[in-house]
Amino acid sequence: MACVALATYAQNLTGFAFSLILLGLVSVFHVASVGDTANAATVLSLINAWTYFRARPGVVPWRLMKPALNGSTVGVIAGLMLLTWLSGGAVNWLRGLLGVSILGCALLLVLQGRPQSAVSGRTSFAVIGGLSGVLGGLFSSSGPPIVFHMYRQPLERELVRRALLLMFAFNSLVRLVIVLPTGHFSWRAALLAACAMPVVYGVTRLHHRLPNKLQPRTLKWLVGSLLAAAGSTLIASAWLAIAQG
């Protein structure tokens, strides 16, 4: 529950990182299996988004994110099919490559001076959404590509957070619809999700009542640090798995 609380707080602060932080902490402390945690995180991401949008009524950026959502739907399906087809060793190499890519995104984000002069086009959103969906299907971690893309846009940070929450909730719903009928959602994952729901709801409501007013530069460094930590964790876990197997 402490891991869930920390991951939820980071998610509400930056708009992403829930699954990455939760999976990383669970792996470090050996609290539960990665598979059960990933499935539980899928449900909890939906609860977090619902609570956030309910506590902060406002515009949901459907129109802005529609190309990315369409791309991510195809991407999640492709990622789950790829996960089924690949061997364990290949998945570990892909996990390491993902970690290197995340570290690269973190470096580019921190070094970037100003946001883009104009919002990216629909094709760009669709391609990034598709890539995020593939990573979500493979690792339940669709954040890095869309986070990097959104934080480069000349948009208010609150709108970026809402767009990211919408994206992750949508990806989680697609993944859940596919995973549940195939029997890959265990009772243990359901129990973990049920126990953690009050924590997600409580932390999200608390953040709404006591929000942090971070400067854009501070938030950019915080997001970059979270990306770097997530990338390092993925590289380390992939290296250990490859070395052992």
Rank of each mutant, 00 (worst) to 15 (best):
Y9I: 01
Y9M: 02
L13I: 09
L13N: 03
G15T: 01
A17Q: 00
I21W: 05
G24Q: 06
S33N: 05
S33K: 07
T37R: 03
N39I: 01
A40R: 04
S45I: 06
S45Q: 01
A49H: 04
R54A: 15
A55N: 14
W62P: 04
K66V: 11
P67T: 08
L69E: 03
N70M: 15
N70C: 15
G75P: 02
I77K: 03
I77F: 11
L83N: 11
W85M: 08
S87G: 10
G88L: 06
A90M: 13
L97F: 02
L107V: 07
L108I: 07
L109P: 03
Q116M: 06
A126S: 07
I128M: 06
S132L: 04
G136Q: 04
F148N: 02
M150E: 04
Y151P: 01
R152N: 09
E156M: 08
L164Y: 00
L166R: 03
L173D: 09
V174Y: 09
L176S: 14
I178K: 04
P181D: 12
P181S: 11
T182Y: 10
T182C: 10
G183K: 14
F185R: 10
P198D: 11
Y201Q: 13
G202F: 14
L206V: 15
R209T: 14
N212K: 04
L214F: 12
L214W: 14
P216S: 06
K220T: 06
L234K: 03
I235S: 11
A238H: 12
A243Y: 10
